[in-house]
Design a binder for these strands. Sequence first.
DNA 1: CTTCAATTTGACACTTTGTGACACTTTATG
DNA 2: CATAAAGTGTCACAAAGTGTCAAATTGAAG
Lengths: 171, 171
Amino acid sequence: MSQSVKLKERWVTGASPIKGKVEQMFFGQYEHNLDAKGRITIPANFREQTLDGVFVTEGFDHNLSVYSKRHFEAIAANLAKTSITNPASRELRRKIFSNSAELSYDPAGRILVPARLREMAQIKGSVVIVGIGDSFELWAVDAWKEQEMRLNDPNADENRWQAFDLTTRGE
Amino acid sequence: MSQSVKLKERWVTGASPIKGKVEQMFFGQYEHNLDAKGRITIPANFREQTLDGVFVTEGFDHNLSVYSKRHFEAIAANLAKTSITNPASRELRRKIFSNSAELSYDPAGRILVPARLREMAQIKGSVVIVGIGDSFELWAVDAWKEQEMRLNDPNADENRWQAFDLTTRGE
DNA sequence: CTTCAATTTGACACTTTGTGACACTTTATG
DNA sequence: CATAAAGTGTCACAAAGTGTCAAATTGAAG
């Protein structure tokens, strides 16, 4: 691996907390193009919150989920504590780790998502990068359009979200 | 350009912990071909984390498990703690130690898994190398496909993994 | 609106990796 | 011993991955 120290200063040295912004919050959506080798430029403001790279895993809805290291390491540490003599533990490890990748940014702010994962999510040509709070997602353009339509469907059950308590005061 | 050492020097000199990446974590899956002599090229990023070679043992699910020295020693230590008056302990010891091998990489990054172990796991022609966090596994292509189907089976018991708490907050 | 800086993009050069082939060495066998 | 089988090292090629740079685009500020 190349020794990323002399690079473009800002994203390398800027290890400090983001001034005046909430820490690790991802908002908005961006459509970006893949280059000839399949690399994806991550939006600069997402990058600033994940300077030391990210974990990409298979998502639950035919997409890819992207987590900061801190987030994913906690999961991995918990898994590592379980015993390999337990069959369910072995299967869970396989499910989670075999479909993830640890990625870092190149000097131009791009990541190369493994071909297998891109194919899984049918991502090619361009990709939609969607902030969902503490992580973000990568979607094939078509799949995202479909998802958006579902979110905005006026005929859908009005009450589908009622179970979630989203009061604005903390507890 | 001090970093781009050639493969030869890398495995000879031992070298430093992988910078900027989580230590000893194996992710993703790769299908590789065996050569005429049965040697398997291990993915470069796996190799970098096991420069001083690996232990291969019979897995629990008709596959082969591959551990770094450090990890294998930890397993051995745990086993040593169990009482030899316990028949299951004795059998587990036999299962693990009688079917393992300590292997090192050749200058091209390949290992030669003993024929007996390859046959045990029905590995021939090509092999799937599966990262499962702190170790990785070798699977016959067919066996892995079957395992993957089981992992993704929506009809399987939903609760099979519920025992594992993977919350992301530390304790 | 215009200007300026930051960001994304595409193109290209370069490096690394996996593979297959082949030659050579070591080990086992009669 | 001769011979076969198993194991090991080396090379060259194609494919995959990575770094760099300049043009194009975007977005913010005046």
